[in-house]
Design a binder for these strands. Structure first.
Lengths: 218, 218, 218, 218
DNA sequence: AATGAATGAGTCTTCATTCAT
DNA sequence: GATGAATGAAGACTCATTCAT
């Protein structure tokens, strides 16, 4: 994970160029990405072999390199892809909600729903994203930051509207929000029990909104 | 990170056998462990070479294997060691505090103080611990769980004494507490700015205790 | 360079079949050959990719294999082609010269002129031809030998007419002649200075004809 | 053959440090080098496998990399080593000879003797040294140049003493001398007949000194 | 005929681990 | 106990070649 990440040319492909060839290429790209996420979720990135990914995707080893520059970039593309679509969904869903509390609750639910629906992706995000400080630093500059900013916008909006306490540091509040979601998901993927993630949304929102204390802030 | 973790024979060495030889052995063991944490924090576990650790510790490559069974076990021992002493400190400090809110505040502060004082250790815990779902699952069975239980005890104690809301899921509350700390520390190690961690303790406790909302829980 | 060289079917194509199709085929064959010589001269045979040659020739990778059996055979065909036309020119030019010294001088000049005019070809001949003892052995059986025999004929002709010393080994004399030309050309392609090759012809002929010594052979 | 050549640290090892360990290291280095020359002479550099060289030297594959940085550098070290000792011998032998003709004859004989005694080395020098224009250019800057300068010194010395014709270009004369030797050796390694190289020395010197012509230079 | 996406065999190199000293 | 030279298994990646279109 030492090379800089560069978005695959794919990201900027003109949608106009979607002839049969481009569509087939797109499909194979997706298939390799999905296979990679599965394999990495099962064995961890370091223990995953490029040949494992290739054979699960039903292509030859060399074919991988027609779509990705290196093993590292498969992981980066997978994380990037997941985040990109996740953030797009989040923006869409939140745009129709008026109050900050509603937005916060919606975001929490969305986070749990998306990851709860795709355990391999959740495993990769919760584990491999943290693999290396350097990688995380770089990735977080690009995608994670934009997710955290979405959260901060909600907090600030609530503070401005008076829904949320104006005395709080928004940065700290975001850390609590993201950290809580992060840990709930991590606990879920590590748990041997098989439970649903989404139903926890309201409990989590409740703690974040009102705290654990029975009293009031001094 | 594929082998099962087995505590180094060292862990159970009779403290009675502490002649000069044993003391020297202990010192070298510590030196290797500290070197390992530094090297891994700098380069990540996968990119760290056993020979890097050896030369930083001032011993020959082969000597490492007189103290550890494998490269994996160096990482495990380092994490294990850090957690063990951390939990001992936590128990000591919390035992003299009577109320749940005080304990929670103390725990938050302790967490930030300990990691804030040892950045390499924080880097390793925040990144390498997550490296592999399998590894994390195993480790969390052993040490992390005991830390999370300490947190749960505080939550439950607060609920029983009426300080904390009894309607909350203690498991969710713990996730929020641990997740918040976790994310604050991760943000710190990734930040390019150089700030102190411990001063954030009260803000974090405040959010956790009273929530972000200006209103009351329904 | 492990396969035996077999002249491309092309070599024996009936010139009668020279319709438009055949002419187009011939042109593309030439274009690929010329591209191959350029690419190989620039990067060396081992570092030249078939796809480099194809794209420089403006054809698809697969098209190469409609004209050549393998990458090795492209190199062989290029060398073969160069030598064949070179030897034809040599025979033509020498046939109108009566004396051995004149022929030797003409051959030296021709050698330097032809290679001096086509540096990429010179590079390939001086470097890639020597790449492998096995390949050189085979090639020299086929084309180089015929060039060396042309040289030997000149030497013998001179010895018979009394122009050249009869006591010399003709084989040694040929080695000196070819070796001198070979090294002058190699020095030229390696030189950073940019000079003309042909003007050196008379100096070289002079050394070969009369030696470096100021005295007479004993 | 793309990396720059750097003389192995070995070249500059203090001879004082020749304990048993250093001696053993030196021996193994020599053994690997000799095995490499043999294997490369048999199969050509491109077709030689590092594992072939290792097994012929009786060491593990990985051991090669304790002595050489890469496969390329094995070849470079072999050529470098051969040239270095060759030039040392040449200087020694020529230093005791007073006249230019004698020196030229001695050099020709030495060249043929040394290569005639070690056919694998001759094969490697005659074929692999020419493999790539870039490599040859670099190598010739370092070692070959110093050999050619030795030749040029002899020519100039002869011209100054009046033994050799002063009107000749010394550069051309050197090309004829080196080229002749080069080609005689190449013919020898390619020949299927098994003959001695050294006995050809006087014939070659004869041609170089007095030329092929029966007449006198005009 | 021409294409170029796909193939998969092949190998250099790394590095955790061992063991003779 | 300590050393560090030696080991050799393992895998990412390349690229000549094929073949369905």
């Amino acid at each position: 994970l030492t090379q800089r990440y560069e978005p695959a040319a794919h990201d900027f492909e003109a949608p106009l160029d979607s002839g049969d060839a481009a569509k087939s290429r797109e499909l194979k790209y997706r298939r390799i990405l999905a296979s990679a996420v599965e394999v990495i979720a099962e064995k961890g990135f370091a223990s995953s072999r490029v040949s494992d990914i290739a054979s699960r995707a039903g292509v030859a080893d060399g074919t991988i390199y027609l779509y990705f520059k290196s093993k590292d970039q498969i992981l980066m593309a997978a994380l990037d892809d997941a985040f990109t679509s996740f953030i797009r969904m989040a923006h869409e869903r939140l745009s129709v909600i008026g109050d900050a509390e509603g937005k916060l609750r919606a975001l929490v639910r969305l986070h749990l729903e998306v990851l709860g629906r795709n355990k391999p992706l959740a495993v990769v995000l919760q584990t491999e994203l943290r693999q290396s400080a350097k990688f995380l630093a770089e990735f977080s500059q690009r995608r994670l930051r934009s997710y955290l900013e979405l959260m901060r916008d909600i907090i600030r909006e609530g503070q401005e509207s008076g829904e949320f306490r104006g005395t709080l540091s928004d940065r700290i509040a975001v850390s609590c929000l993201f950290g809580a979601l992060d840990d709930v998901v991590t606990a879920w993927i590590l748990s041997e029990r098989d439970y649903e993630l989404a139903p926890l949304a309201d409990s989590i929102s409740d703690v974040l909104l009102f705290g654990v204390s029975n009293g009031r802030a001094s």
